[in-house]
Simulated assay, not measured.
Amino acid sequence: MVIIGVLGALILFSAGCTQQSDSVEAVTDAKVEKDVIQAYGMVKSREVKNLVIEFPSSIKNINVSEGQVVKKDEILIEMDMTQYEKLITQKEEEVKISEMELKNLIGENESIKKQINASKSEIESIKSTLEIKKKMYNNNTDTNIAKLQGEISNAEKLLSIALDKMNSTKKLFESGSISKDEFILVQSEYDKCDIELRNLKLSLEGHKYTLKEEIESLRLRVNQKSAEIDKMQQSLEGNSIEIKKAQINMLKTEINEMKEKSLKSYIKDNCIVCDFDSGVISDINCKNGDIINQNNGVAYIVNLDKIYIEGDVEEEFIKDVKVGASVAIIPDVDRSIEYTGKVTKIMGMATQKNGDTTIAIEVEIVGTAEHLSYGYSVDLKISKNK
């Protein structure tokens, strides 16, 4: 009986201990569930590059497939850039021709400017001569005119003397003191003086007319030269050097812009290459033989060095998620692996997914994660305590 009692006591004690152990374990499990928030996530990248070709070309060969992991400088697509290079060469030839035309224009303009300056100097010389001639005409200071005026003055005096002599001789003739022949001789002397005076006056008028014609001719030459200068000035404006320079600059700008289109980090030696240390091809939007016109995206490449997790937390639990919180990342590809991360961003708005209201969060991966790649699904266990 004693033995039975002892055994009974031992059984009761053992049962009590077992119940206590189960109770502690249950409390511990509840605490674990209570301290974490579970969520679903997907691996994304902060840099997904659209490999855009902005110039005419064609696809010769595609060396990769969608989902393929590639490394730095690995050739993805080979291109034929002959048409693009030909367009640049044509533009460069246009620049050479335009520069030759500009050189000729500059030479022509310099020649025209010299002609204009020479014509202006000639006009000044003509104007100077014109002023002198006008003064000579208006003031009777021309040498020939002055000489003729002096001769006319003397001739007028001689004519006056001859007239007086003729009048006195006429009286003598009328009184019978002298013969008719003597009177006629005196009269002929008067006529001779009168003719001489008339000839001198005609000569003076002729000289004045000639001088006036010279003045008019000089005025006409000034007007003609001025018209020639105006025409040459218009020619300069019509052959504008600045317009030609602007055309050349525009061509050079076009060439630079065309060349810059191929100066992408992912274009080398007529090929599209991987410009990430590690990447994966997510989409290919072309095939061999395709003609590329402009701004065609031929493929997308994901930077695997900038991956992160985008998770969805149910609305009722988001209040317990904090930026900086520690996160256990368990990839679906191998649930025996667990990586560490931390919450870096909580979105400010909710979305509806499959009838549930969720808020997106971003989780940065701490350290390396060899078994995580772009597009992989993961489970997240977010610690409520940072």
Rank of each mutant, 00 (worst) to 15 (best):
I267N: 00
S226D: 15
S278D: 04
I116A: 03
A146D: 04
M250R: 07
E242F: 01
A325P: 09
I75P: 03
V69Y: 12
I291M: 15
S121Y: 10
G150P: 00
S121H: 09
V43N: 03
T89I: 05
A15V: 13
E310V: 05
I97H: 05
S278C: 06
L148E: 00
M42L: 15
A30M: 10
N270K: 11
I382L: 11
D290A: 03
E364R: 07
S23F: 09
M347P: 03
S23N: 13
I243R: 10
V302N: 01
S65R: 15
N140D: 15
V52C: 07
Q234T: 15
D283Y: 14
N239K: 10
M1A: 09
L220I: 11
E214G: 01
K345F: 15
K31R: 06
L163F: 14
K91Y: 11
I248G: 02
I255V: 12
N109I: 01
G5Q: 08
E131V: 09
E310N: 06
N354Y: 11
A360F: 08
G289D: 09
K381H: 10
M1N: 10
I330H: 02
K96M: 12
S373T: 15
V95C: 08
L12H: 02
S235K: 10
G289K: 02
S153N: 09
S373V: 04
N139P: 02
K192G: 07
K135H: 12
V366W: 04
P331N: 06
L148M: 06
Q38W: 03
T358P: 03
V2M: 12
I255D: 05
P56V: 08
F317L: 13
S125K: 13
D269H: 02
L163S: 15
A162K: 03
R198H: 08
I59F: 00
I59Q: 02
N354H: 14
I62P: 00
G289E: 11
